[in-house]
């Protein structure tokens, strides 16, 4: 099968969905030129009324999608960097995400929020933050975070077709990662996890770049520990069944979440496991997150981030 990069896979999702549905359009800052290559060349293909550049005006940029979505369009808002979403937090989280329930379920809001996120490029907090927990904290929006080009394309297509706001972040460190993507059309549904590696001793649950890290560790430990890696692919909807199925085999859990530990997704997931699957556990749960401090830039950032070494230590602790 052919191999393409994650960012090219997202670009293909845009092209396919824009070809089949003229209501789909892209809006963002400097996306016509392709600040990231997921939008390169699309303005030539679809015209500048479907690939829209905005000024640095995040509230109106989201507003352009929120309003148009209420009128039957399917916009994709490219924030460029996940940290920039904070600028329009009210427009995304209180308005777009919660409009449907708050207004009696009268109007759906089919829009996609996307951005490159994640640390590793020494860019300091605003460009390194992964704000998925902030989104998850506001019921009304779905959240996906792929780890492979295949998943990125399939999830983005599902996100565009969904009748709700969907936030799909992609990790900057995976942007040029290559993976197998079939030529023929497919979808990856939101809310279906994927066991990326089967194992029997310990379950590692992760998303985004941390799936790659977990797989690396699992391969390295192959002769000592049988590690199962569950890639959630989306955190809302959450495929809890996939986690409990895995725990039935392994009875041990490590959660890796590239986000600040305090009040993060790992904390939420662990609370759910304790609540629903406590009897399956043979050891205390371990979590690997970003330390509770601003993400530094420069070489310092490596200290606070999840990495394969920290994941390995956690695995060794839960099987001890």
């Amino acid at each position: 099968m052919r191999e393409i990069t994650l960012i090219e896979a997202i670009r293909e999702a845009y092209i396919e969905e824009m070809q089949v549905d003229e209501k789909v359009f892209l809006v963002g800052q400097d996306i016509r030129g392709g600040n990231f290559p997921n939008t390169t060349g699309l303005v030539e293909m679809f015209g500048d009324d479907r690939v829209l550049d905005t000024p640095i005006s995040e509230t109106a940029m989201v507003g352009s999608a929120f309003g148009a979505a209420q009128m039957g369009y399917r916009p994709v808002v490219d924030f460029m960097s996940g940290g920039f979403a904070y600028v329009a937090a009210c427009e995304v989280l209180l308005q777009s995400a919660q409009h449907y329930f708050q207004h009696g379920g009268n109007v759906s809001v089919p829009l996609v929020i996307t951005a490159g996120v994640g640390a590793g490029l020494k860019l300091a907090n605003e460009h390194s933050v992964t704000p998925h927990a902030m989104f998850l904290h506001h019921p009304g929006i779905k959240v996906a975070f792929p780890s492979t080009p295949y998943d990125a394309k399939g999830l983005m297509k599902s996100a565009i077709r969904d009748n709700n706001p969907v936030c799909m972040f992609w990790h900057l460190a995976l942007m040029m990662e290559k993976g197998q993507v079939p030529e023929e059309e497919y979808l990856v549904p939101l809310g279906v996890a994927d066991v990326k590696r089967e194992g029997t001793d310990v379950t590692v649950v992760a998303t985004g770049l941390q799936v790659k890290h977990a797989l690396e560790v699992a391969a390295n430990l192959e002769s000592e520990v049988s590690v199962e890696v569950v890639d959630l692919r989306s955190m809302e909807p959450l495929d809890y069944e996939a986690i409990s199925r895995s725990l039935e085999k392994t009875n041990r859990l490590v959660v890796v979440d590239e986000d600040t530990e305090r009040c993060g997704f790992a904390a939420e997931l662990i609370a759910q496991v304790v609540d629903k699957s406590f009897d399956l556990l043979d050891a205390p749960i371990e979590r690997i997150c970003i330390d509770n401090m601003p993400i530094p830039g420069g070489y310092l950032e490596a200290h606070v981030l999840p990495n394969p070494a920290k994941i390995e230590t956690a695995i060794r602790r839960v099987i001890a």
Binding site: G63, S64, F66, A68, A69, H103
Partner: peptide, 21 residues
């Protein structure tokens, strides 16, 4: 379509409604 408890919130979706119009 609706409203918001945040004064001035309508300015943002107005861009989208105008765009769709």
């Amino acid at each position: 379509f609706g409203t918001s408890g945040c004064i001035g919130a309508g300015f943002s979706p107005t861009v989208g409604w105008g765009l769709a119009c």
